[in-house]
Design a binder for these strands. Structure first.
Length: 149
DNA sequence: GCCAACGTTGGC
DNA sequence: GCCAACGTTGGC
């Protein structure tokens, strides 16, 4: 059992959308490190911190969990999709996505508050220059964060 | 809108 | 394989 933080722009897909939908395919990731986390390490039941990025109040907005192992991301084959990848073929897919379901919407634990906790000083999300949209979360950090939600 | 940080691309 | 140029992310 592992823990993850997954970023989404609420203007594209926010916690309220996940509450409405119940479950969602995490398609559109086009970064190899983030892809590898999904494809190689995520397992059904893994915990997910749902994070709002690129918005007025960035922070953790809810808890989710992985419900489906990674499989080829359909949008890479769709010329009409902004996520289309001309170098990907069904035989040799390049991009993958898992599916996650809502556990619960939480209070917004803002980025600024995360930065205030010395317990979270080593969190990957908070490291200088980090831009990865999917990062592993240490179990101790996970428990600490969940206790603050 | 700015810009630091970092990933990707492509010429050589 | 190097590395400059360019593109993207994402907080502020």
């Amino acid at each position: 059992m592992r823990y993850w933080l997954m970023k989404s722009e609420p203007s594209e897909y926010g916690i309220d959308d996940l509450v409405r939908d119940g479950m969602v395919a995490w398609f559109g990731v086009r970064n190899y490190q983030a892809r590898n986390f999904m494809r190689d390490q995520m397992r059904v039941g893994d915990g997910v911190l749902f994070y709002h990025s690129s918005c007025a109040e960035p922070g953790i907005a809810g808890l989710a969990e992985v419900v489906k192992l990674a499989y080829p991301d359909a949008s890479q084959f769709d010329p009409a999709s902004p996520y289309f990848d001309p170098k990907a073929t069904p035989d040799r897919p390049r991009w993958f996505n898992v599916e996650v379901r809502i556990v619960r919407k939480t209070r917004l634990l803002r980025l600024a508050e995360l930065r205030d906790y010395p317990e979270l000083a080593d969190m990957r999300l908070l490291q200088r220059g980090n831009r990865l949209s999917i990062t592993p979360v240490d179990p101790i950090e996970w428990r600490f964060i969940v206790s603050k939600l």
